[in-house]
């Protein structure tokens, strides 16, 4: 079985985001970029499935300009067998990304498309669901446990009510939640080895190009600040303050 893993290049989760003063977007110049944390978890799970003998090949895929090759190389250093960059300089919509994953899944004959549950830049939480719908295959989103058993899988999902379990036939789309695993650290020799692993570049147009009408992003603003708080001395003062404000 082949597993495709989607890895998005995103602002590192530790970076404090700044909105540009002209409202045109979020400052990304000189900001640390990383693999979207959920995608690192998806890749780790794919590698574990391969290491357990249930998959033969793990292919990392990123859609974007040449800069995404940096994250693809990190994915290869973590242990992916090869990488595909779907080349475009344009802003991407989820429908386009989903179509790319369907096209690649069909081209590669993938048994599993493993994505993150959401990209921490756009916070969309859409691509996995849309990929499954377009592909006509099962979707198991927000996975915190995945057990592959022959042609099917049992997936535990983190839902508002608790933990839901579903059974899906392969091929399928799974999206990772945070508690699925803890990704491994990359070792230096692996980074050297990753340089020799194959990285193919395919033009976005070759896989169908853009899809759907794009909502237009306009002005960006920082969130409204919360009013200045106070520090109280002790528990009695806290209780007095809460009573004073009619909160208890």
């Amino acid at each position: 079985m082949k597993i495709l893993v989607g890895i998005k290049r995103a602002v590192d989760y530790n970076v404090r985001i700044r909105v540009r003063s002209d409202g045109s977007g979020v400052e990304t110049d000189g900001v640390k970029m990383s693999i979207n944390p959920f995608d690192e978890i998806a890749l780790e799970e794919a590698l574990r499935i391969r290491e357990a003998g249930k998959a033969d090949e793990v292919i990392v895929v990123s859609i974007g300009g040449n800069e995404v090759q940096q994250q693809l190389r990190t994915g290869l250093a973590m242990g992916a067998d090869r990488a595909i960059q779907v080349d475009t300089a344009d802003t991407l919509q989820p429908l386009t990304v989903a179509k790319v994953f369907v096209a690649l899944a069909e081209r590669e004959g993938a048994g599993l498309v493993f994505l993150g549950k959401q990209a921490i830049d756009d916070d969309s939480n859409q691509v996995g669901q849309m990929t499954a719908a377009l592909w006509g295959r099962p979707q198991a989103t927000f996975a915190s446990k995945v057990v592959i058993d022959g042609d099917s899988a049992t997936v535990t999902r983190e839902v508002d009510a608790g933990l839901e379990t579903i059974e899906i036939d392969l091929p399928a789309v799974i999206t990772s939640d945070l508690r699925l695993n803890e990704p491994r650290f990359v070792k230096l020799p692996d980074i050297m080895k990753a340089k020799r692993k194959p990285l193919d570049v395919i033009a976005l147009d070759e896989l169908g190009g853009h899809a759907g009408v794009a909502p237009e992003a306009g002005h960006h603003a920082p969130p409204a600040p919360r009013g200045g708080g106070i520090i109280v001395e002790d528990t009695a003062a806290l209780v007095a303050e809460l009573k004073n404000r009619g909160l208890v």
């Binding site: 985001i17 979020v26 921490i120 916070d123 009408v213 237009e216 992003a217 306009g218 960006h220 603003a221």
Partner: peptide, 18 residues
């Protein structure tokens, strides 16, 4: 809608007809 964990709020417009 919020992006970047709510650290930025973006205006979005869906074109007519869609």
């Amino acid at each position: 809608r919020p992006i970047y964990a709510g650290n930025a709020i973006v205006d979005v417009t869906v074109p007519e007809g869609s």
